[in-house]
């Protein structure tokens, strides 16, 4: 019925959601969603507000564990291993699958301490190594030149766009394999947004990126694959080009042509 059935799109997947259901109390926010997310590419999740795309994203690194009343059924595999298996450690999983949130969430610490926080909690104590990691991560996040002279200033003094790039650097510093992004540019101005988009283009060379976005233009600009969500279900999944030029489902076509949403 839908294009997500295994085999319909030939993907060497990094992350694989299999018959995923997410409940908030008795409300079912995600209904039997299956999706393969390829390695070293950008997969965009689009759909109208409240369609469950953020809920789906948060199920991919067990963030729902932190939400009282939320329940996840089904499987999500990372390199073939189920992250919801009873012996899977959410701390290890989130180390390998990082997340960038809709609103920048800098810790009330210095820029340096923000970026070094991840490596430190994973046991890195060596100052020189930490310095190198902080610099590498900030360079990767295209922020180094703007902050290299004020690493010891509070991260809260940065602009919104800089804070968001710092939050991306903070994730990069723990060297995850997958980066989940929940509308990372929705709170930013157009210039900051385009910087983030450029950055995502760089990141996919090394990381697998799954990004929720409100903006269809953004999905079209940055992603290889796109999944269209509606009312908690994945209506259609395919290459971004196909989704935007030759959608096979009526709902997808209605959405991308702006008839609802």
């Amino acid at each position: 019925m839908i294009d997500v059935s295994p085999g319909s799109v030939d993907i060497r997947e990094k992350l694989n959601a299999i018959h995923l259901n997410v409940f908030y109390g008795s409300f079912q926010a995600i209904k039997d969603a299956s999706l393969k997310m390829a390695a070293k590419t950008v997969t965009a999740l689009i759909g109208p507000s409240g369609c469950g795309k953020s809920t789906f994203l948060r199920a991919l690194n067990r963030m729902h564990d932190l939400t009282p009343g939320a329940r996840v059924e089904g499987e999500v595999t990372l390199d073939g291993q189920d992250i919801y298996a009873p012996d899977a450690d959410p701390v290890v999983i989130r180390h390998r699958i990082g997340m960038v949130f809709q609103r920048p969430n800098p810790f009330p610490k210095t820029i340096y301490e923000n970026v070094a926080y991840g490596p430190k909690i994973h046991g890195e104590r060596d100052k020189a190594t930490l310095d190198a990691t902080v610099e590498r991560s900030l360079r990767q996040a295209a922020l180094w030149d703007e902050v290299k002279d004020r690493l010891n200033r509070s991260a809260l003094d940065l602009s919104g766009g800089q804070q968001q790039r710092m939050c991306i650097a903070r994730v990069l510093a723990v060297e995850p394999e997958v980066i989940l992004m929940d509308e990372p540019a929705s709170a930013l101005d157009p210039i900051a947004t385009s910087k983030i988009e450029d950055l995502i283009g760089e990141l996919k060379k090394e990381f697998s990126v799954v990004i929720v976005t409100h903006s269809m233009q953004q999905a079209a600009r940055i992603s290889e694959y796109t999944a269209f969500f509606h009312l908690g279900e994945i209506i259609e999944f395919g290459t971004t080009t196909n989704i935007f030029t030759r959608p096979r489902e009526k709902k997808t076509e209605d959405y991308i042509t702006g008839r609802f949403g």
């Binding site: 690194n61 963030m63 999983i93 989130r94 969430n105 800098p106 009330p108 430190k120």
Partner: peptide
């Protein structure tokens, strides 16, 4: 909540989140 999520999403334990982020905040 965003502070807690930010820390947990980096693969911190709850104890690391409490001592490393919440206490100073």
């Amino acid at each position: 909540v965003s502070l807690r999520e930010g820390s947990m999403a980096l693969g911190s334990t709850r104890w690391q989140m409490i001592t490393g982020v919440l206490l100073p905040s």
